[in-house]
Amino acid sequence: MVKDTPPQMLGANGFKYREQFGVIVVCKDEAEHRAVYERLKADGYKCRLVRV
């Protein structure tokens, strides 16, 4: 049985788009930032750190 798969979307430069979902957590300070990151990583989440 063949599943219907949507066609891959290509940008003008040939970039293959892959849908992703994310969550932003706003922290009160650097210590909380570090603690939240460590907790999420320990739970198996792929995380990226951002400081603005």
Score class of each variant (00 low, 15 high):
D29E: 09
M1N: 08
E32G: 03
G11F: 13
E19F: 01
N13Y: 04
G14Y: 05
C27F: 06
G11Y: 09
R39Y: 07
V26Y: 11
V2E: 12
F21H: 02
F21Q: 01
Q20H: 02
N13A: 08
C27D: 04
K28N: 06
P6M: 01
L10A: 07
K41I: 07
G22N: 06
V36R: 09
R18Y: 02
D4H: 08
I24N: 08
T5I: 13
E32L: 04
D43M: 15
H33W: 14
V26C: 06
N13I: 02
V2M: 07
V25F: 11
I24Q: 09
D29G: 13
R18L: 05
M9S: 12
K16N: 05
P7G: 08
C27L: 06
R18C: 02
D4R: 14
E19I: 00
I24V: 12
Y37Q: 15
P6D: 01
K28Q: 11
L40H: 03
L40T: 02
Y17C: 03
K41V: 14
L40Y: 08
E38G: 02
P6G: 01
Q8W: 04
F21C: 00
Y37V: 14
T5L: 13
K3Y: 09
T5Q: 11
K16D: 08
G14Q: 04
V26P: 01
G14S: 07
A35N: 12
D43V: 07
E32W: 00
H33K: 14
D43Y: 09
E19H: 03
E38Q: 15
A35H: 13
P7M: 08
K3N: 09
F21K: 00
N13P: 01
D4T: 11
T5W: 09
E19P: 01
G22I: 00
M9D: 09
R18I: 06
H33C: 08
L10W: 05
Y17N: 02
V36G: 05
Y37K: 15
V25K: 01
Y37N: 15
A31F: 10
E30W: 13
A12F: 06
V2D: 11
G22L: 01
Q20I: 11
E32R: 06
K3Q: 06
R39N: 13
F15Q: 12
M1I: 08
Y37C: 14
D29S: 08
E19T: 07
F15A: 12
V26N: 08
F15N: 10
P7S: 11
P7T: 12
E38Y: 07
K16R: 13
F21T: 00
C27Q: 03
K16E: 13
